[in-house]
Design a protein around this nucleic acid. Structure first.
Lengths: 200, 200
DNA sequence: ATTACTTGCAACACCAATGTTGCATGTAAT
DNA sequence: ATTACATGCAACATTGGTGTTGCAAGTAAT
């Protein structure tokens, strides 16, 4: 009698998984706007009672941890889906940008939080993405897409920042492809005039 | 007897002003790292007792409000000091960048907080700076420094983001001028190769 | 030394968020 | 109908941060 539902994840009444997702999504959304949001607020935003949240996540910390891991996973998947090590650098760059923008219109919370301590899993994923990104930029450099001699880690950080900025705009239901184009274009060409005085 | 120190701001024992500054600076620094920091933590970071903080700022909200205004003021001053409407666009751009980087190694807190509501003073200052920035970019565009037809507000946001990113690095005691150069260079030229495939 | 002022420290009341429990309700399987 | 599960609700204890007060000590003027 103990095990009559044979499935691995036991869907059972089938709502549990969905509820967790709803909570995590609501948490990401609300915490991005207000990092000090109450459990009550998170619960309300997810459409459940506060006690239900506590049933799923023993403590607030536990919820934040799960959220951090979950966001990192989505982030990594969005990057990997673009075949960053196989596709031509420019194509991969564009694809990654679009994928990331699509997955999360705004990361601000789970992304910008100190993930280094006590989150080995998330930290690993972020580091991996970072490495993938630098690898891609390196290929791009060899292909003549990126200027030679440029600081690749600085470039990566600028890239992150551009995506972040574009994501804010994306909340208004803009066209993802247009945003991705703008990000890549800005990253590569900047805002200066072609024959400009930039070298002065 | 009531007024024997005639000065407008009554320096008196002369420490009060200094203490307030120390508290605000510490608050900015600590809150940037942890927006949920305790009054106790802020006090310790400022090198004073918690009660002293409460003597200067009736409530936590009051402290945050003052901090917001204070940061906005410094921001505005850093920009104005560069004569953004008089100096040649490129010079002004560089000067603003350096000034801002010098004044605040990290804004993240006072800058990225919802300043629109209940902070009319700070909101006004930020709006003014934003306008000044766009005006400068407009002049830069006319001077052939910025590409014609480019979205000036997007450019401004990218500029802010670049400064923000450079500021993180600046914490490590890097050379301000080198950072400013990098920011301006990245803003104008991006990271792509000159004759690159960027137009593809 | 006295005065004016500020700070640190300890103690306190207060409150809001956290985390817990029990119970009634609802729903989908059996 | 019964079983198995999940939820909402109300009530509760606990905790940690906030804001207050009183007092002793320290410092710079007079």
């Amino acid at each position: 009698m103990t095990v009559q539902k044979q499935q691995t994840k036991r869907p059972l009444r089938a709502d549990s998984e969905r509820t967790v997702r709803a909570i995590l999504e609501a948490a990401e959304r609300v915490l991005a706007a207000n990092p000090a949001a109450t459990m009550e607020q998170l619960a309300r935003a997810a459409g459940v009672a506060r006690t239900t949240v506590h049933r799923r996540f023993a403590t607030r910390e536990a919820l934040l941890d799960e959220l951090t891991d979950w966001a990192a996973r989505q982030f990594a998947e969005a990057v990997d889906a673009a075949r960053p090590d196989a596709a031509p650098p420019l194509v991969a760059l564009y694809q990654i940008t679009a994928n990331v923008l699509r997955v999360k219109t705004d990361w601000s919370f789970a992304m910008n939080r100190p993930v280094e301590d006590s989150h080995p899993e998330a930290a690993r994923m972020h580091a991996e993405v970072r490495a993938t990104c630098v690898r891609l930029f390196c290929r791009a450099q060899e292909a003549g897409v990126l200027r030679p001699g440029i600081d690749l880690d600085w470039t990566r950080r600028v890239y992150y920042a551009l995506i972040h900025e574009a994501a804010k705009e994306g909340a208004g239901g803009e066209d993802i492809d247009a945003l991705a184009t703008r990000v890549v274009d800005t990253l590569l060409r900047g805002a200066g005039a072609p024959g400009g005085l930039a070298g002065a």
